[in-house]
Amino acid sequence: METYYKPEDLGKFATMGEFAPDLWEKFMSYYSAVFESGALTKREKALIALAVAHAVQCPYCIDAYTQSCLENGANEEQMTEAVHVACALRGGAALVHGVQMKNVAKGLSF
């Protein structure tokens, strides 16, 4: 295996329904419902998904939700801001754990 991630593997996602078709059906039904327009528009949901895709660093999701954002009327400016939200959350999450570091350090120091 020359690489763990291949673009064509995204098209094989449905093979996860083999051996567990009921679970797959339930997941896909739920998944489709999540992205329908509701209190949030499809465009807003696609932008959230794009930010999460970057936070979880899933290349399949980044590929899929970049296209989804464009096809739901977002532009690169909005998509870049969404990625910055993910970046701020990941960076902020690391930084706020600095408080743990401080707590531990204080407990050990004079």
Partner: peptide, 8 residues
Amino acid sequence: FLPPNQDE
């Protein structure tokens, strides 16, 4: 890429 939903 394809266009978004027209109404939205």
